[in-house]
Simulated assay, not measured.
Amino acid sequence: MIIHNLETENSILNQFISEIRDQVIQKDTMRFRKNIERIGEVLGYELSKTLEYTKKTVQTPLGVKEIFQPEKALVLCSILRAGLPLHQGLLNYFDTAENAFISAYRDHSDNSDDFEVVVNYLASPSLANKILLLADPMLATGKTLENTINAMKSHGEPKQIHIISVIGSRKGVEYIEDVFPKNTHLWIAAIDEELNSKGYIIPGLGDSGDLSYGIKL
């Protein structure tokens, strides 16, 4: 796996990450969602540098200009519900991409720290010979991404996969390295070193879905 960890260089991304981590600022749910969206835009811009480009001719009112434009055979897939603001940020830049959505949640059936990731909804176009962008803001254990890609296999084999995450754990990153193809790219804004007993990233930021859309039962 090719890992692009954007926290290794200082940029405006630091400000957005600081605000989504801050327990006071993150209480403003609209601001939290907007910051996730802006992080998606930054990650999408960096990702765009690795795509294939084709020279095309554009007719302006005063002449003709040749411009290289990116490959458009993209499918953008978000993991509900936490992935929606990140999805919007990416869609702001990859506005011609096809879209897919998948639901995945942690099932603590016996109220213990152990959980199973359950996938029970998928809406996706064909992935055959396309570039798949998988958006999941919190890469904790990596099991959600594993179950997601397994569920999508029936929709064809993409020619390349890009995973886009906001914050991940070191353990989660190492886990998906063994699950995904070697040429998979991971675009991530920060990697934290620890997971707690419940599988949450430390220091992380909490539950991204709850912070975006409210606490669930």
Rank of each mutant, 00 (worst) to 15 (best):
K27H: 09
Y93V: 13
K72N: 11
I67R: 07
Q69C: 15
K34S: 13
V64S: 12
G83W: 03
P61K: 02
R38H: 13
C77G: 04
V24K: 05
Q88V: 14
Y45D: 10
L91I: 14
I39N: 00
E52G: 03
R38T: 12
V58R: 00
Y53M: 01
E52I: 07
L84P: 01
A82H: 02
R31E: 13
I20L: 07
L84Y: 06
E46R: 14
I67Y: 06
I36F: 06
K34E: 10
A97H: 07
T29P: 08
G89H: 02
Y93L: 15
G40A: 03
L47K: 00
T96G: 01
I36S: 03
E71P: 01
K49Y: 09
L80T: 05
C77S: 03
P70V: 08
T57E: 15
K65D: 00
S78V: 10
N92M: 13
P70S: 08
P70R: 11
L91W: 15
A82R: 00
T60L: 10
H87F: 14
L86V: 02
F32N: 08
Y45E: 08
K49Q: 11
R81A: 03
T96I: 08
G40D: 01
V64C: 09
E71H: 01
T29V: 02
K27S: 04
Q26K: 15
T96A: 04
K72C: 03
L80A: 09
R33F: 08
Y93F: 12
F94D: 05
L62P: 01
K65N: 09
R33I: 11
V58N: 00
V64Y: 02
G83D: 04
I36Y: 04
D95A: 15
K56D: 00
T54E: 12
L84T: 02
S78T: 15
G83E: 04
G63A: 08
K34R: 15
L51Y: 03
K27Y: 12
D28Q: 05
L47D: 02
Y45P: 05
E46G: 06
L51I: 02
G40C: 05
V58K: 00
K72F: 03
S78I: 03
M30Y: 15
E71R: 06
L86F: 03
I67D: 03
Y53W: 05
D28Y: 00
F94K: 13
L80S: 11
V58L: 05
N35F: 10
G40M: 05
Q59Y: 06
V42L: 08
Q23V: 15
P85R: 02
F94P: 08
G44Y: 04
G44M: 08
K27G: 00
Y45W: 10
V75C: 04
I39K: 07
F68E: 15
G89L: 04
P70W: 04
L43V: 06
R38F: 13
T50Y: 14
L43T: 02
L76E: 07
I20H: 05
T60N: 06
N35E: 09
K34Q: 12
A73I: 13
V42D: 00
L47S: 01
E71T: 12
R33N: 10
I25S: 06
E66N: 14
Y45M: 13
Q59F: 11
L80E: 07
Q23W: 05
D22S: 09
K72V: 09
T29S: 14
K55Y: 03
R33P: 09
T50V: 13
L90N: 14
L90S: 14
E41G: 05
L43Y: 07
V42P: 01
I36R: 04
T96S: 07
V42H: 11
